[in-house]
Design a protein around this nucleic acid. Structure first.
Length: 629
RNA sequence: GUCCUAGUAGCUCAGUGGAUAGAGCGACCGCCUCCUAAGCGGUAGGUCGGAGGUUCAACUCCUCUCUGGGACACCA
């Protein structure tokens, strides 16, 4: 009696817990709520049958949809129950059948207990939710109240953006949107690298070779204009080196030394010193050329759909940090080396010693980053700061985070390096010296041209409206999707000739599906009987329809996962799955059909939800939505 | 040398420890009387780099090893 009472209480507690779980998941994902109630049911049955005390059980997806929607592999209980897993499966099924259980049909297949959910039971609430939330559908609150700062792009002001930057920009922008979609308050920051000897190189070349031409006099985009002089500098330097080499070979080593003593490199160094000393003429030229480049970069950002909430400029931030290091020195966090430089020993995290201040007291890269991080936290007290920077810099960030931690900033634990892989060409790394760098503007331009050709060849000019604008949006979709579908951490290979296609698993394919759905909905508008028709979920009984319902209901969890992982590719894979399934479905199923209103109404409601999900996912990935293409 | 990363179809990439490893491209074969053929269907194509180990179960985790990429500046 006493035991039974206890058992009763236990079960009650459990169902309260269960209710809580169900309620929680209802908020995120209606399908998961059903799944989790099944999970709890199976756990309960297993515990009762074999006197166990399991709190969790493995739940997976069956390999084929006709086998059901969820699968419970029951191998693990074989040992404790001392029974073959196949027998356990049928015993568990019978046990569940003997009492109350969630809606759904069970079957066993070997050691697996499979459940086909009654997907229609969630349909109307799901439809209601998607309709009410609209463009907010999929948004969650897992990061509510969190202030997240995201640093990305960080271009140099001596050349235009290339494909590598585009991956960075695409990723940074997408992740920031995904974090926002999970409820975070996001601050996108860009650190402009407008200072240093590399900047002086383009300035010097301009000074020597320009004859006073400007972007407006040549009609060039500012960043390309400046970039041209950066390239010019490199060839100039090379020319001088070759000249010196030749002289040396001819026995004129003195003349050779003379040339190298005043080589472009040396002159650029001198220019940097002039800049740092505040030389008026140098600063004036620097400002002018910076402006040209930035105008160009801003234009590229706009074309790519990238924006920032705040800009930091290295010409300012390079001053931050020195005081922090000196304070750290006083506090004994750092030490002064024999030569007078300030250093830190990073052996605690398996790294070498690192210099933080040169012996002459000047700062280096990492010193600036220390100062900038501190400054940023003062500017906007973030809960997390994510640096979107290529994987090459893992060492740097490991050291940086450690240093900040050592300086006593507790928020150092919340710094995160979102390290992404390189974009390589089939023949290897992009090298500016070999002219193999894929320019961002050029790439967008040529993709737009290809898209335009496609539109014209399909005779869709009148249907799409503004051909150039649509072509541009198709190009953007191709590029963003291409860059985001790959897991961020991985290196990727970009083949300019083959990789960007408009067919298959691509951005334009997704846009096309969106356009086709829009087209269906336009047609449905003309069938007035559809407007007030009752929606009967049971009519959506095909495999594709069930898959699509499941997919729609899963969207919020996908957004959450992408947010947890900082990984837009999760959304890319998901939305491709949606598009593909839909594409297969509507190929052989008429949606807007005046001759069968009930079926048509049900299908339309499903298609309407798919469209909402697509639009919302597109938004997160930077894929423009097109009504028609 | 040390550390980090990756290795899955010809190519580019997916793949929460669970059933027969998936897409796209490329190749080959079909499909426009129907809401856009930037589409749909089909065929061919795999010792998941290799060897051990853990596990009822390994592409997935661990160790070793081979190969590629990256890092290990008083450059940024």
């Amino acid at each position: 009696m006493q035991y039974e009472l206890k058992h009763e209480v236990y079960v009650n507690l459990k169902s309260i817990w269960l209710f809580y779980i169900v309620f929680w998941y209802l908020e995120i994902n209606m399908l998961d709520s059903l799944k989790n109630s099944w999970k709890a049911t199976v756990i309960k049955a297993v515990n009762k049958l074999y006197g166990l005390n399991e709190t969790d059980i493995n739940m997976t997806n069956p390999p084929k949809s006709e086998m059901g929607d969820i699968a419970f592999p029951l191998f693990p209980f074989s040992k404790s129950a001392r029974k073959a897993p196949q027998i356990i499966a049928s015993e568990v099924m019978n046990e569940i059948l003997s009492s109350e259980h969630p809606e759904g049909e069970m079957n066993t297949a070997g050691a697996y207990l499979n459940v086909a959910l009654n997907i229609h039971s969630i349909y109307l609430p799901l439809l209601e939710k998607v309709r009410t939330e609209g463009f907010l559908y999929g948004r969650g609150e897992s990061l509510k109240g969190k202030k997240i700062m995201l640093e990305f792009s960080c271009p140099n002001t001596n050349k235009p953006l290339h494909l590598g930057h585009m991956r960075n920009d695409s990723l940074g922008e997408a992740v920031s949107r995904i974090l926002k979609a999970n409820g975070a308050e996001v601050m996108k920051v860009n650190l402009i690298n407008n200072r240093g000897v590399h900047i002086c190189k383009s300035m010097l070349a301009y000074k020597v070779f320009s004859n006073g031409e400007t972007p407006s006099s040549t009609g060039e985009k500012g960043d390309h204009f400046v970039g041209r002089y950066y390239v010019k500098f490199a060839s100039w330097q090379k020319e001088m080196e070759e000249k010196a080499e030749k002289l040396r070979n001819e026995g004129h080593s003195q003349e050779a030394d003379e040339i190298m003593k005043n080589s472009p490199e040396v002159q650029a160094q001198a220019m940097l010193r002039a800049w740092e000393e505040g030389d008026e003429e140098t600063i004036k030229l620097w400002k002018l050329m910076n402006e040209w480049t930035l105008d160009g970069l801003y234009e590229s950002y706009e074309n790519m759909g990238i924006s920032f909430d705040r800009y930091y400029y290295e010409s300012e931030t390079y001053k931050y940090g020195k005081a922090e290091i000196l304070k750290g020195l006083e506090d004994g966090v750092f030490f002064r080396a024999e030569d007078g430089s300030v250093q830190i020993d990073l052996k605690e995290i398996g790294l070498d010693k690192k210099v933080l201040l040169r012996k002459d007291g000047t700062t280096i890269y990492i010193t600036q980053d220390v100062g900038t991080a501190i400054r940023r936290h003062e500017d906007w007290p973030f809960d997390r700061l994510i640096y979107v920077v290529a994987s090459e810099q893992q060492y740097h960030f490991k050291a940086l985070f450690y240093i900040l931690k050592k300086l006593g900033y507790s928020w150092a634990d919340e710094l995160y390096h979102l390290s992404y892989g390189m974009v390589n060409l089939p023949e290897g790394k992009m090298k500016s010296r070999e002219g193999t760098v894929v320019d961002a503007d050029d790439l967008l331009e040529s993709l737009s041209a290809l898209a335009k050709e496609e539109i014209i060849s399909k005779d869709r000019e009148s249907a799409v409206g503004d051909v150039d604008s649509v072509a541009r949006k198709i190009a953007l979709a191709a590029l963003n999707y291409y860059l985001l579908q790959v897991s961020p951490t991985k290196d990727m290979i970009f083949d300019p000739k083959k990789s960007i296609s408009f067919n298959g698993n691509t951005g334009p394919y997704l846009e096309y599906m969106g356009a086709r759905i829009s087209s269906i909905l336009r047609k449905a508008e003309t069938i007035s009987a559809l407007k007030d028709a009752e929606i009967k979920p049971d009519l959506l009984a095909s495999d594709d329809e069930k898959s699509l319902i499941k997919l729609v209901s899963q969207y919020p969890s996908v957004v959450k996962e992408a947010g947890d992982e900082y990984d837009p590719s999760v959304i890319a894979a998901y939305i491709y799955e949606v598009a593909k399934t839909f594409s297969h479905y509507y190929h052989d199923n008429q949606v807007a059909d005046a001759s069968n209103i009930p079926l048509s109404a049900a299908r339309l409601s499903l298609v309407e939800m798919i469209l909402t999900v697509m639009k919302n996912a597109f938004e997160l990935l930077g894929i423009p939505f097109l009504e028609s293409m």
